[in-house]
Structures are given as C-alpha cells and as structure tokens.
Design a protein around this nucleic acid. Structure first.
Lengths: 222, 222
DNA sequence: TTGCAATAATTAGGAGTCCTATCTATTCTC
DNA sequence: GAGAATAGATAGGACTCCTAATTATTGCAA
C-alpha cells in the first residue's frame, strides 16, 4: 500500500514558487549581461536607458530608486552614458542642486535597440495558453502589489493603483474600465508600466484594489 | 456609447507578463545586494554557496553554468570564498585538470544563514491564496521548462523531467507519483530543486511532460 | 538676513562582477 | 608519443555596488 504521507511535502508552496522566481531572475541577469557584449551597454546602463525612455525626464535620485540602486551607483551609470553621448545631464530648472536627465537622439535609438532583450521570456511564455498567461498576469499583479506595499520595489505605474482604473464595472470578459481612454478592458490587458499612469490616493487605491482582487457580489470568473 | 476598441490593447499578454517578471528580477537583484552588506557576501558568492549546499561537490565549470556566468567569473567568486575559508578547492580525483569545490564547515553555516534571503518574496506571495499559488507554480514550471529547452537556463533538477516523476496516475488532488519515495503528490508540491533528482532521457522527458501538461483522457482540474 | 539643517549630487576608495583573450596543466585520441 | 581538446587560472579593463565624506543649493527660522 502506498504511503499517503509524502515527506517531501515540507516547505510551503510560496517557498517553491520563490525558488522558481529566483531561477527566472538568474536567467534575466545572465541574459542582460550576454546582451551587453555587442552593444557595449551593461545591464544597469540599459535599464537606465529604458527607464528614461519610458519616463521622459527624471532626476538622478528618482532614477536610482527606479533602478533599485543607491545614488552613487546611478551617478556612475549616468556618467558612463553621458560619456557615450546617450544621455543629457542638465541642471533642473526648479532646483539648482538637482539634475534633469533625458535621452539624446542617439540615446533614444539605443534604447529602442536594447528594448527587446527580454524577448526570450516572451518566447518561453508561449508554453502557456492565453488563459493561463492571463491568470499568471493577474497573480503577478498581486505579487508586485505586495512587493510595492512592503517597500521592496518602487511604486509601479500599473493599472491597479491608478486613478483611472475602475475594476469590475462591466459584465463579460472586459469587466474593467479605464477612465482616461474611456474603454473597457480585461485582466489580460493589465499593465505594469503605463505612460499615462496617475497614482490614486492610498485610500482610493486600497478600495479599488479590493474591488479588483475580490469582486464581492458578482461571481465574475474572468 | 463606450468604444469597445481599447487602443492600449497593443502588445501581447506575454509582453506584459515579461515586464512584470523583469520587475521581480529587479527586486531580487536589489535585495541580494542589500543583504550583501552585513554578511560581506555578495550576490554571486551567496548564490555559489547556496548552489554548493544543494549539490554537494561541484566542478568549477558546472558551478559557472549553474550561476549563469563564465568560468573566469566563477573562478573569481570561488577565489574570494576560498580566501574567506568558506569553500574548499581540491583536485578532482578523476581528472587532474579539474577542481572539486565543496563547502567547509564555516561555509555550511554561512550558506544556512544566507539561505532565506528571498523571504520577502514568500511574504509577498501571501497576497495569493493557496489555489492561486498552486496555479502560479504550475505556470512557472512550464515557463522554466521553456527556458530550459531554449538553453536560456541550465537544466533544472525539477520534478517534471525526472525519471521518478509519474504525472496524472491517481485520482483526487494528488494525481502525481514520485517513484523514489513512492508517494502521491499534487502540483502544489512540484519542485524546481530536488536533491534526489535523476534526469530522464530526452525522449522519456518529453512524453512525461505531455502527460503532465495536457492530461488527455481524464479532465483532471487540480 | 544671516545661519544652519536638510537635500541633491558627486567624489573617493575599495571589493567584486563580468567580460574577452591568453596561458598552463592534463587528458584524450590517433 | 604528438597534437588536439579540455579544465582552470590569469591578465586587463570597464562597470557595478557599497559606505563615507564633499560640495552646492535650498528652505526655514531666529
């Protein structure tokens, strides 16, 4: 008779998931370095470029926070990018101490060229069908929100947490609504980076969060 | 009337998921460095320690592959660990060119101390209920298998791909079976790192994979 | 309106991460 | 045995990262 007690059950599901996420993290790191060779853009430099492309103009400390590094490290990376002619460093008009970082024309081009380095992830995600990808995206949204709340990650410009986001207000497979573009959309369209993101107040954000994460009355199974 | 065409629909779900995974990767990198300060163990060193703890004895090139870096980089990290007295570097008995790396007693202790650095991820995963965590783990397994197939990640010691793994052979919520410990288990027990892993042949692995990923006859919804 | 604390960035200094290219032992193969 | 292949180590160089200490500015307060 088979023993029903699987002693390898030790450890939580969350721990096992973490191991998997760490593997993905490793792959991302390795890939970023591999990609660095030809273009002469190291991972941090590439990430800085990508961030500036998405945000337009940023101050150094904001960039550092976005990259998850200290100000000196960000300063190093920016210095390298300025030397390469990819980033322009100007005095911020509002504050004489601060700098306003932005991409040069060459920087825009370099950012575009470097933009698709995580394509290998997109390919691997082909292992999942659309419904599974959507569920994954939804779970990832919750996870990232948790990291954000805990201060482990900078505040993201994602739908959930945006003033314009109205969750579960429609029936069907596009239950949410974006007030900015005035359109319905579903979980599969949720974004982590939106150029038009406008942060909601903490109070509104948590109310909206609950309406998205646990739609109380209607049993909406999208 | 609301326009049903959400113009921000551009881009695939997979791309949006990739953005999210990159965020997680960023958090992992940042955390690993933060944790490095007090213990004086940098990310690569910590990862090397963790790998050696999981694998016992490893040769340098195997360690390098596991860490996703080149041999010289691994050699650097190992030299630092040897200098700190955490790793022993011996000549491999079978091959005079190779080295056998293993942890010293101090190294074991250090590895244990460093082991729980991704606890912040475990905490954030608390945002997901058990069923959702399980689904996430399942998707992650598919994703990692995809990365493995594409050569973006070293071959993992995960259940799916192991000789002992028998998917979907039972009814109920523990449909799989591990022949090694002779016990039933479910998707929520799937591992990415198993000390007893024994790789199946490519042929067997792909057949087993299909039986796990798309259980044809029975509509098993675990 | 000085006068000083706080803030934004940079510099200094040091360990480590990575790479490519090269070199040194060994081992394998013919 | 000789030459090719393999396992590591070294060399050299750009960058990443950190903590501390500096240099400008700003903003508030006496």
């Amino acid at each position: 008779m088979v023993t029903p007690q699987f002693d390898i059950t030790r450890g939580s599901v969350a721990e096992r998931v973490s191991v998997g996420l760490a593997k993905i993290g490793m792959a991302l790191k390795a890939r970023a370095w591999r990609a660095a060779g030809p273009t002469r853009l190291t991972p941090t430099q590439g990430q800085a470029l990508a961030t500036l492309r998405g945000r337009g103009t940023l101050r150094l400390d904001a960039l550092a926070a976005e990259l998850g590094v200290t100000a000196p490290t960000a300063s190093d990376a920016v210095a390298a990018l300025v030397a390469k002619g990819l980033v322009a460093r100007r005095r911020a008009p509002s504050d004489g101490r601060a700098v306003a970082l932005s991409l040069t024309a060459a920087g825009e081009a370099a950012a575009d060229a470097v933009a698709d380095w995580p394509d290998f992830l997109v390919r691997a995600l082909g292992q999942l069908d659309e419904a599974e990808q959507t569920a994954f995206l939804r779970s990832l949204t919750k996870l990232i929100r948790g990291l954000q709340e805990a201060g482990d990650i900078p505040v993201q410009r994602m739908c959930v947490g945006c003033t314009y986001f109205q969750p579960n207000v429609h029936a069907g497979d596009r239950p949410h609504h974006c007030d900015l573009v005035d359109a319905a959309f579903g979980d599969r369209h949720l974004r982590f980076e939106c150029a038009d993101h406008r942060p909601a107040t903490p109070h509104d954000a948590s109310a909206t969060w609950r309406r998205w994460a646990d739609p109380l009355p209607t049993g909406d199974l999208t």
